[in-house]
Protein backbone atom coordinates (compact mmCIF):
# COMPACT_ATOMS: atom_id res chain seq x y z
CA UNK A 1 0.00 0.00 0.00
CA UNK A 2 2.89 2.38 0.78
CA UNK A 3 4.14 1.85 -2.76
CA UNK A 4 0.86 3.29 -4.04
CA UNK A 5 1.08 6.22 -1.67
CA UNK A 6 4.58 6.98 -2.95
CA UNK A 7 3.38 6.57 -6.55
CA UNK A 8 0.45 8.93 -5.92
CA UNK A 9 2.71 11.55 -4.31
CA UNK A 10 5.19 11.36 -7.18
CA UNK A 11 2.38 11.48 -9.75
CA UNK A 12 1.00 14.60 -8.07
CA UNK A 13 4.44 16.21 -8.23
CA UNK A 14 4.51 16.46 -4.44
CA UNK A 15 7.75 14.51 -3.94
CA UNK A 16 10.63 13.42 -6.13
CA UNK A 17 10.83 9.72 -7.08
CA UNK A 18 14.07 9.44 -5.09
CA UNK A 19 12.76 11.04 -1.90
CA UNK A 20 13.23 9.04 1.29
CA UNK A 21 9.78 9.21 2.82
CA UNK A 22 8.97 9.21 6.52
CA UNK A 23 5.59 7.87 7.63
CA UNK A 24 3.28 8.29 10.59
CA UNK A 25 0.26 6.03 10.24
CA UNK A 26 -3.12 6.15 11.94
CA UNK A 27 -6.00 3.71 11.68
CA UNK A 28 -9.53 4.90 12.08
CA UNK A 29 -12.15 2.61 13.58
CA UNK A 30 -13.90 2.54 10.24
CA UNK A 31 -12.20 1.92 6.95
CA UNK A 32 -9.60 4.58 6.26
CA UNK A 33 -5.88 4.78 6.84
CA UNK A 34 -4.43 8.21 7.53
CA UNK A 35 -0.79 8.88 6.96
CA UNK A 36 1.42 11.88 7.54
CA UNK A 37 4.17 11.54 4.98
CA UNK A 38 7.35 13.62 5.20
CA UNK A 39 9.78 13.97 2.32
CA UNK A 40 12.79 14.51 4.56
CA UNK A 41 13.15 18.17 3.59
CA UNK A 42 10.52 19.48 5.99
CA UNK A 43 7.49 19.15 3.69
CA UNK A 44 4.67 17.00 5.03
CA UNK A 45 1.61 15.61 3.30
CA UNK A 46 -1.56 14.23 4.75
CA UNK A 47 -2.69 11.12 2.91
CA UNK A 48 -6.01 9.35 3.36
CA UNK A 49 -6.34 5.90 1.81
CA UNK A 50 -9.36 3.66 1.58
CA UNK A 51 -10.11 0.40 -0.19
CA UNK A 52 -13.77 0.16 0.76
CA UNK A 53 -15.08 3.33 -0.89
CA UNK A 54 -13.98 6.08 -3.25
CA UNK A 55 -12.70 9.34 -1.81
CA UNK A 56 -13.25 11.16 -5.12
CA UNK A 57 -16.39 13.00 -3.97
CA UNK A 58 -14.73 13.87 -0.67
CA UNK A 59 -11.82 15.38 -2.63
CA UNK A 60 -14.22 17.49 -4.72
CA UNK A 61 -15.94 18.79 -1.60
CA UNK A 62 -12.57 19.46 0.02
CA UNK A 63 -11.43 21.45 -3.04
CA UNK A 64 -14.64 23.47 -3.03
CA UNK A 65 -14.14 24.25 0.66
CA UNK A 66 -10.55 25.30 0.00
CA UNK A 67 -11.75 27.67 -2.74
CA UNK A 68 -14.28 29.25 -0.39
CA UNK A 69 -12.38 29.17 2.90
CA UNK A 70 -8.66 29.23 2.07
CA UNK A 71 -7.74 30.59 5.48
CA UNK A 72 -9.40 27.71 7.29
CA UNK A 73 -8.44 24.66 5.24
CA UNK A 74 -5.33 22.75 4.33
CA UNK A 75 -4.52 22.58 0.62
CA UNK A 76 -5.94 19.54 -1.18
CA UNK A 77 -3.42 18.33 -3.75
CA UNK A 78 -4.71 15.27 -5.58
CA UNK A 79 -6.97 12.26 -5.62
CA UNK A 80 -5.96 9.10 -7.38
CA UNK A 81 -7.00 5.46 -7.60
CA UNK A 82 -4.30 2.79 -7.62
CA UNK A 83 -4.83 -0.97 -7.40
CA UNK A 84 -8.17 -0.61 -5.68
CA UNK A 85 -6.98 2.06 -3.24
CA UNK A 86 -8.61 5.47 -3.33
CA UNK A 87 -5.91 7.92 -2.21
CA UNK A 88 -6.48 11.56 -1.25
CA UNK A 89 -3.47 13.83 -0.74
CA UNK A 90 -3.40 17.20 1.00
CA UNK A 91 -0.57 19.42 2.17
CA UNK A 92 -0.16 18.90 5.90
CA UNK A 93 -0.17 21.84 8.28
CA UNK A 94 1.52 21.37 11.63
CA UNK A 95 -1.25 21.88 14.16
CA UNK A 96 -2.43 21.08 17.65
CA UNK A 97 -5.98 20.15 18.65
CA UNK A 98 -8.35 22.81 19.94
CA UNK A 99 -10.10 22.06 23.23
CA UNK A 100 -13.12 23.53 25.00
CA UNK A 101 -10.79 25.47 27.29
CA UNK A 102 -8.96 27.03 24.30
CA UNK A 103 -12.19 28.36 22.83
CA UNK A 104 -13.70 29.39 26.14
CA UNK A 105 -10.50 31.06 27.32
CA UNK A 106 -11.03 34.75 28.23
CA UNK A 107 -7.54 35.63 26.94
CA UNK A 108 -6.60 37.00 23.53
CA UNK A 109 -5.92 33.53 22.14
CA UNK A 110 -9.48 32.36 22.95
CA UNK A 111 -10.94 35.59 21.60
CA UNK A 112 -8.97 35.15 18.38
CA UNK A 113 -10.24 31.58 17.93
CA UNK A 114 -13.84 32.64 18.55
CA UNK A 115 -13.46 35.56 16.14
CA UNK A 116 -12.14 33.22 13.45
CA UNK A 117 -14.98 30.78 14.06
CA UNK A 118 -17.53 33.55 13.55
CA UNK A 119 -15.48 34.65 10.54
CA UNK A 120 -15.82 31.19 9.03
CA UNK A 121 -19.59 31.21 9.50
CA UNK A 122 -19.75 34.70 7.98
CA UNK A 123 -17.70 33.51 4.99
CA UNK A 124 -20.08 30.56 4.60
CA UNK A 125 -23.03 32.94 4.63
CA UNK A 126 -21.33 35.23 2.11
CA UNK A 127 -20.58 32.35 -0.26
CA UNK A 128 -24.23 31.19 -0.11
CA UNK A 129 -25.36 34.05 -2.35
CA UNK A 130 -23.28 32.79 -5.25
CA UNK A 131 -23.69 29.11 -4.39
CA UNK A 132 -25.92 27.80 -7.17
CA UNK A 133 -25.07 24.20 -6.29
CA UNK A 134 -26.27 24.37 -2.72
CA UNK A 135 -28.65 21.70 -1.53
CA UNK A 136 -32.31 22.68 -1.26
CA UNK A 137 -33.40 22.36 2.40
CA UNK A 138 -36.77 20.90 1.56
CA UNK A 139 -35.34 18.14 -0.62
CA UNK A 140 -32.64 17.34 1.93
CA UNK A 141 -35.08 17.13 4.84
CA UNK A 142 -37.58 15.11 2.80
CA UNK A 143 -34.83 12.57 2.06
CA UNK A 144 -33.64 12.60 5.66
CA UNK A 145 -37.13 12.02 7.06
CA UNK A 146 -37.92 9.29 4.52
CA UNK A 147 -34.64 7.51 5.29
CA UNK A 148 -34.92 7.72 9.07
CA UNK A 149 -38.61 6.81 9.06
CA UNK A 150 -38.04 3.59 7.14
CA UNK A 151 -34.66 2.45 8.39
CA UNK A 152 -34.81 -0.55 10.74
CA UNK A 153 -31.59 0.68 12.38
CA UNK A 154 -33.30 3.82 13.69
CA UNK A 155 -34.87 3.64 17.15
CA UNK A 156 -38.70 3.96 17.34
CA UNK A 157 -38.75 7.36 19.17
CA UNK A 158 -36.56 8.83 16.45
CA UNK A 159 -38.71 7.35 13.75
CA UNK A 160 -41.77 8.89 15.39
CA UNK A 161 -40.02 12.25 15.63
CA UNK A 162 -39.03 12.11 11.97
CA UNK A 163 -42.60 11.32 10.94
CA UNK A 164 -44.15 13.93 13.19
CA UNK A 165 -42.07 16.85 11.92
CA UNK A 166 -44.01 19.63 10.26
CA UNK A 167 -42.36 20.26 6.85
CA UNK A 168 -43.09 23.97 7.15
CA UNK A 169 -40.56 24.12 10.01
CA UNK A 170 -37.57 24.14 7.69
CA UNK A 171 -39.24 26.17 4.98
CA UNK A 172 -37.86 29.46 6.31
CA UNK A 173 -34.38 28.32 7.31
CA UNK A 174 -31.75 30.12 5.24
CA UNK A 175 -29.86 27.89 2.80
CA UNK A 176 -26.13 28.03 3.48
CA UNK A 177 -23.87 25.09 2.60
CA UNK A 178 -22.83 23.47 5.89
CA UNK A 179 -19.61 21.77 6.89
CA UNK A 180 -21.80 18.96 8.22
CA UNK A 181 -19.51 17.77 11.02
CA UNK A 182 -18.32 20.93 12.72
CA UNK A 183 -17.29 19.46 16.06
CA UNK A 184 -14.27 20.16 18.24
CA UNK A 185 -12.40 17.10 16.91
CA UNK A 186 -12.38 18.68 13.48
CA UNK A 187 -10.85 21.94 14.66
CA UNK A 188 -7.20 22.67 15.27
CA UNK A 189 -4.90 25.61 15.50
CA UNK A 190 -1.69 26.23 13.65
CA UNK A 191 -0.11 29.01 15.64
CA UNK A 192 -2.97 31.50 15.93
CA UNK A 193 -4.72 30.24 12.82
CA UNK A 194 -7.93 28.23 13.17
CA UNK A 195 -8.00 25.17 10.93
CA UNK A 196 -11.05 23.12 10.03
CA UNK A 197 -10.74 19.50 8.86
CA UNK A 198 -12.94 16.75 7.49
CA UNK A 199 -14.85 18.34 4.61
CA UNK A 200 -16.35 15.10 3.34
CA UNK A 201 -19.91 16.25 4.12
CA UNK A 202 -19.40 19.87 3.04
CA UNK A 203 -22.44 21.11 1.13
CA UNK A 204 -24.43 17.90 1.57
CA UNK A 205 -26.91 20.04 3.44
CA UNK A 206 -27.54 23.80 3.47
CA UNK A 207 -29.64 23.77 6.63
CA UNK A 208 -28.31 26.98 8.19
CA UNK A 209 -27.61 26.58 11.89
CA UNK A 210 -26.60 22.91 11.69
CA UNK A 211 -22.89 23.75 12.07
CA UNK A 212 -23.65 26.16 14.91
CA UNK A 213 -25.76 23.54 16.66
CA UNK A 214 -23.14 20.81 16.32
CA UNK A 215 -20.37 23.07 17.50
CA UNK A 216 -22.40 24.38 20.43
CA UNK A 217 -23.26 20.80 21.36
CA UNK A 218 -19.67 19.73 21.09
CA UNK A 219 -18.71 22.57 23.47
CA UNK A 220 -21.56 21.62 25.83
CA UNK A 221 -20.53 17.97 26.04
CA UNK A 222 -22.18 16.26 23.05
CA UNK A 223 -24.97 14.76 25.10
CA UNK A 224 -28.72 15.14 25.68
CA UNK A 225 -28.20 17.41 28.69
CA UNK A 226 -26.12 19.77 26.53
CA UNK A 227 -28.72 19.73 23.76
CA UNK A 228 -31.52 20.41 26.27
CA UNK A 229 -29.55 23.29 27.81
CA UNK A 230 -28.97 24.87 24.39
CA UNK A 231 -32.67 24.60 23.69
CA UNK A 232 -33.69 25.94 27.10
CA UNK A 233 -31.42 28.98 27.59
CA UNK A 234 -32.90 32.02 25.91
CA UNK A 235 -29.64 33.88 26.32
CA UNK A 236 -26.44 31.87 25.91
CA UNK A 237 -24.24 34.60 27.47
CA UNK A 238 -21.87 33.06 30.00
CA UNK A 239 -22.36 29.57 28.58
CA UNK A 240 -19.76 27.56 26.67
CA UNK A 241 -21.85 28.06 23.53
CA UNK A 242 -22.11 31.83 24.00
CA UNK A 243 -20.79 32.28 20.45
CA UNK A 244 -24.03 30.78 19.10
CA UNK A 245 -26.08 33.98 19.30
CA UNK A 246 -23.58 36.00 17.26
CA UNK A 247 -23.10 33.04 14.92
CA UNK A 248 -26.84 32.82 14.30
CA UNK A 249 -26.99 36.56 13.59
CA UNK A 250 -24.18 36.05 11.06
CA UNK A 251 -26.28 33.38 9.37
CA UNK A 252 -29.41 35.58 9.47
CA UNK A 253 -31.09 32.99 11.66
CA UNK A 254 -33.11 34.24 14.66
CA UNK A 255 -31.67 32.70 17.84
CA UNK A 256 -35.10 31.56 19.06
CA UNK A 257 -35.71 29.76 15.77
CA UNK A 258 -32.28 28.14 16.12
CA UNK A 259 -33.11 26.89 19.61
CA UNK A 260 -36.41 25.46 18.49
CA UNK A 261 -34.71 23.66 15.62
CA UNK A 262 -32.18 21.73 17.76
CA UNK A 263 -34.04 18.36 17.39
CA UNK A 264 -34.30 18.97 13.61
CA UNK A 265 -30.55 19.62 13.41
CA UNK A 266 -29.84 16.47 15.37
CA UNK A 267 -32.10 14.46 13.06
CA UNK A 268 -30.30 15.94 10.08
CA UNK A 269 -26.95 15.03 11.67
CA UNK A 270 -28.21 11.51 12.37
CA UNK A 271 -29.10 11.25 8.68
CA UNK A 272 -25.64 12.50 7.64
CA UNK A 273 -24.12 9.85 9.90
CA UNK A 274 -26.33 7.03 8.61
CA UNK A 275 -23.38 5.17 7.12
CA UNK A 276 -21.08 5.62 10.09
CA UNK A 277 -20.15 2.97 12.60
CA UNK A 278 -22.79 1.52 14.89
CA UNK A 279 -21.11 3.15 17.88
CA UNK A 280 -21.61 6.66 16.49
CA UNK A 281 -25.17 6.00 15.38
CA UNK A 282 -26.10 4.47 18.73
CA UNK A 283 -24.64 7.48 20.54
CA UNK A 284 -26.71 9.85 18.45
CA UNK A 285 -29.85 7.73 18.87
CA UNK A 286 -29.38 7.74 22.64
CA UNK A 287 -28.88 11.51 22.68
CA UNK A 288 -31.98 12.14 20.61
CA UNK A 289 -34.00 9.58 22.57
CA UNK A 290 -33.10 11.25 25.88
CA UNK A 291 -33.82 14.67 24.45
CA UNK A 292 -37.30 13.60 23.38
CA UNK A 293 -38.30 12.06 26.72
Amino acid sequence: MLRFVREALVKAGAVSPQARLIHNVRLTTESTLRLDVGDGTGSWFHVKACRERSLAEEFDRFRLARERFPAYTAEPIAHTCLAGWSILIARAVEHVPVGVSDLASPGSSGASLRRQLIGFLAAAQASAKADILRQDNETFMREAVACLATSPAVSPPLRDLALSLDPTVWGDIPAISQHGNLVLNNLARAGDRLLIFDWKDYGVTALAGLDICLFALSMAGMDAAGAAAIQRKENPAGQLWAFAREACATSELPYDTFRALVPVYLLAFRYLKRNCSEEIRARLDTMLGELLT
Binding site: L27, T28, T29, E30, S31, E52, E143, A146, C147, S151, A153, V154, R274, N275, C276, S277, E278, R281
Partner: peptide, 13 residues
Protein backbone atom coordinates in the same frame (compact mmCIF):
# COMPACT_ATOMS: atom_id res chain seq x y z
CA UNK B 1 -33.60 8.34 -1.17
CA UNK B 2 -30.38 7.18 0.41
CA UNK B 3 -30.48 3.82 2.06
CA UNK B 4 -28.95 3.35 5.47
CA UNK B 5 -25.93 1.12 4.95
CA UNK B 6 -23.84 1.30 8.09
CA UNK B 7 -20.16 0.95 7.34
CA UNK B 8 -18.55 -2.17 8.68
CA UNK B 9 -15.45 -0.90 10.38
CA UNK B 10 -12.76 -2.98 8.73
CA UNK B 11 -10.32 -1.89 11.44
CA UNK B 12 -12.81 -2.28 14.27
CA UNK B 13 -11.11 -5.06 16.24
Amino acid sequence: MSIETPAVGVYAT
